[in-house]
Amino acid sequence: MKILVCISNVPDTTTKISFTNGDTTFNTAGVQFIINPYDEWYALVRALELKEAQGGNVTIIHVGAADSEATIRKGLAIGADDAVRIDAEPNDAFAVAELIAAYAKDKGFDLIMAGKETISYNGSMVGAMLSELLNLPFVSMATKLEITNNIATIEHDIDGGTEVVECPLPMVISANKGMAEARIPNMRGIMAARSKPLEIVAASASDKLTSITGFTLSKGRTDCKFIDASTPEKLIELLHTEAKAI
């Protein structure tokens, strides 16, 4: 089974955020980047488990500039067999999907996996777009995935509950929490990652349909009003009269 896992590169949530160029550009200086948790913990690890059980190959693909190679190497250290980096700035979901689709279309992947969303921009778009561009079936927000005789059985989140579906491969899946448990790369994996193939592909034509024109930092909540533990009923009163929340 040939599996392609789409990997995005995101700032660690605990990072302090700032902008440059008159608040139009995200300032990457000093920022710790990680593999997007949905891509790593759920999509990649489940892909590796399926490969370990049934044989095959797991390729990770990333659209980004050279500075994201540390992230790609981490994916290889966790156990992906090889990696592809499409050399382009990933600044529009549709363009990213087009680039991945152009690469994947004639490679015969049985399964293409993306994360549910990136934790930085929370688009939740690339997986769905890939399925349309490649004309493949799509199941979003998968929390469980089994494959037998080329048929995927998937449990996924839907509005107000969950659903179990079956779909023949090839297909595209977006991964949500629950598909697998996170793995920590071991020393052997980290050593092996250094010599695993990382193919750099020039960007094909793509359409950029949106752009970010500026950022503003959100104002945090500044003053918490404390209510004495002996009079919690004051809180209920304030929630009614002041916050108008009840």
Binding site: N122, S124, F138, T210
Partner: peptide, 24 residues
Amino acid sequence: AHDFTGKEVAPRLAAKLKAGIVAG
């Protein structure tokens, strides 16, 4: 709406129509 349906259908439609999308 950016709910379960919106998260799946809006980007699919965007890809079909080549429409720029802002999600959320």
